[in-house]
Design a protein around this nucleic acid. Sequence first.
DNA 1: AAAGAGTTTTAAGCGTGTCTAAAACGCTTG
DNA 2: CAAGCGTTTTAGACACGCTTAAAACTCTTT
Lengths: 223, 223
Amino acid sequence: MSGLAREDYLADIYRLQCENPHDPVSTGSVADRRGVTAASATAMFKRLARDHLILYRNYGGVSLTPEGEDLALGVVRRHRLVERFLADVLHIPWQQVDAYADQMEHALPDEVVDRMEALLENPYTCPHGYPIPDKHGHLSQPDLVLLRDLPVGEQVRVARVNERVPGLLRYVEDLGLMPGSLLEVSARNPVDLNVTIETGGRTHILGLRVSESIWVERTGSRG
Amino acid sequence: MSGLAREDYLADIYRLQCENPHDPVSTGSVADRRGVTAASATAMFKRLARDHLILYRNYGGVSLTPEGEDLALGVVRRHRLVERFLADVLHIPWQQVDAYADQMEHALPDEVVDRMEALLENPYTCPHGYPIPDKHGHLSQPDLVLLRDLPVGEQVRVARVNERVPGLLRYVEDLGLMPGSLLEVSARNPVDLNVTIETGGRTHILGLRVSESIWVERTGSRG
DNA sequence: AAAGAGTTTTAAGCGTGTCTAAAACGCTTG
DNA sequence: CAAGCGTTTTAGACACGCTTAAAACTCTTT
Ligand SMILES: [Mn+2]
Ligand SMILES: [Mn+2]
Ligand SMILES: [Mn+2]
Ligand SMILES: [Mn+2]
């Protein structure tokens, strides 16, 4: 009926589309993300296209139809709400909630999701800072800047940390850079692209890998 | 990997075994419970037997191996703990939690289950009164009596209500007979097997359908 | 002991979701 | 523009889990 793998494919297509809004989503990128072969992705594309959930042309990548996007947003909503629940109610470390939510997101009745949302007092984001779509698929899209691109001397708030970069969450936590933390870029090295930041009274030098995985929110205050 | 339907089959075999500890579990009973054809059950039996989770002889019914029982107890544990969670934390009516738990029970990582258990302060039973196996598969087996078989004049506590009898939970709730409620049988009709009970200052006459679906616990007090 | 009824298994088929290996495609480069 | 390379699709296969229809079995009843 609902289809188990379909939901993961749709949500991954959605996320890939968000990360790269200009290009169509390629077979290979979906296969990589899902951990399956390109042949498997192609087969799934045929089924999803047959059911009018994606647009698919041979060798031309895929995109979500409105119906497919609705379903994808539902999965993403469940995923991020469950992450919030696992972190806030069950106190599970934020490094683990993504994997757990990936398992649970397909088995949650709407009523359970809605009650969780109420219990959590309608959170705007998952523990990593990604927005949670509301019941109707709407989501807030705040103005965020990559830490990589932030000018020197402005105090900002950490808004989002890429949950899929291996080891990053643990590293970011050790540095005290969870969503909500305040920081300021005090220097940037134009050669190796390292950024020097001040946060919680300490100084850290972050490589590109890190600075391009953290989004910040301007606060309007000078450092 | 884990197998989705397998878990439901194992848990249903376990429950059928509990309900009727003498006979082996028949193909038809499992098929009925699962809502599939007998042919489907036979096919699943072959796979489960191949994987040493059940003993199966043609035309001879099935029984769980120790390994199969372990898995079954894990599913039952998750099922009943989730029911508790849904009822106590999310305040979902107890008529609905069985169906929801049936969906969720296959997608809960051990750590999530264990944390839920701690949050709930290690409950002994699900909201309907069925015991929750602990992490090692142990479960308390209290001395319960069917209301059908209870002698007149003894005050007892409702311990368990069969969650699979259609409409019963709603009916029992209206009568104020949730697990924990006190009642006393004031009369029994030997012809139609109705029992008359007193509870919460009111008198009700219960048919066999009801009285054979409610278990009670002796309190040692006379009414 | 044979017949009949009910249960169970077998046989054949279908959709999902995965794989490997081979063929087709498309883009870049000589 | 043709060669080559990386990507994508096709072809063929397999396990799971379900179905219907037919065959096989078991148990009861005459
Ligand atoms: Mn998932
Ligand atoms: Mn997240
Ligand atoms: Mn289930
Ligand atoms: Mn229950």
